[in-house]
């Protein structure tokens, strides 16, 4: 058992067998305040990596580093290296627009655009010129909605405002919107935190299905959810990655005292 010291190196195995993204020594600062301390972790192909930890531990901040969404926050600065298929995403080679098309994101609160359901899904493909003409757009919209299980529910209402859907449907629409641009990695920031248990179960099923095509990183407050959907779990504490490893091992045999304390409900 590793003692509860904050600046010990990450316990467990940070590497994945078949890494799609790698983060090495990532530090993030908000103004003068450091929020993330030297986090290194791999994200494997076709796996779900769950990031858990108490509120304010930096898991969302780290998640947003993976598609450079932190760029939109003034005063936010990062160093370290993040690669996608071996290319440094913060180097000049990969444009941030292309990066975000390849690393999609689903947010905590469903945020459909105030447009029709159809236009929400078609937004990304149109933007990136992936579709020409109505037929291709129809096809990609239908495919994306199918994949999120939303097709049967909305196929007659594609022209209606997306904001009229229920919370769970809105979130699945946002996932459909994200996969419509054929990303390689999907980042999910507490995607179920504003949903009821039934909608949550639906999304969790969906995540499991999506794993066949995409690498998924999910931030969650629910340890049960992490246990249910993920293959690997990373535990964050006060901006540090304390421990990472296969989910069953983390939950049954945590190596670090802080991980164990969190999982047994002693804090967090």
């Amino acid at each position: 058992m590793v003692k509860a010291e904050h600046n010990t190196p990450t316990a467990g195995d940070i590497t994945a067998a078949n890494p799609h993204m790698r983060a090495r020594g990532v530090n993030v600062y908000y103004g003068g305040k450091q929020a993330i301390f030297s986090v290194s972790v791999d994200i494997g192909r076709n796996e779900v990596l769950a990031m858990i930890g108490p509120s304010g531990c930096g898991k969302s901040t780290f998640l947003r580093c993976l598609n450079r969404m932190n760029d939109t926050i003034p005063n936010c600065r990062m160093d370290g290296e993040v690669t996608l298929d071996g290319d440094d995403i913060y180097g000049g080679k990969l444009d941030v627009v292309e990066l975000r098309a390849r690393v999609g994101m689903v947010f905590q609160k469903p945020n459909p655009f105030p447009k029709s359901i159809y236009d929400n899904v078609a937004y990304g493909p149109r933007l990136h010129g992936l579709v020409q003409g109505r037929a291709q757009t129809d096809e990609i919209v239908q495919k994306s909605l199918h994949r999120t299980g939303l097709w049967a529910e909305v196929k007659d209402d594609l022209g209606k405002a997306a904001t009229g859907l229920s919370g769970g449907q809105q979130q699945r629409l946002c996932i459909a919107r994200a996969i419509a641009v054929s990303p390689e990695v999907i980042l999910m920031d507490e995607p179920c935190s504003s949903l009821d248990p039934i909608a949550t179960a639906r999304i969790e099923e969906l995540i499991d299905e999506l794993r066949r095509h995409y690498a998924i990183v999910i931030v969650t407050h629910s340890m049960q959810q992490a246990a249910r959907v993920s293959q690997r779990t990373a535990y964050f504490h006060l901006g540090r990655l304390i421990e990472v490893g296969p989910t069953p091992e983390i939950f049954t045999r945590p190596q670090h005292e802080l991980t164990e304390n969190y999982l047994t409900g002693r804090f967090g």
Binding site: V97, L99, M105, F107, F113, H128
Partner: peptide
């Protein structure tokens, strides 16, 4: 959230 949603899809 709407801006984030659009930026997250790779919009400029």
């Amino acid at each position: 959230a709407l801006r984030d949603g659009s930026l997250g899809l790779g919009a400029t």
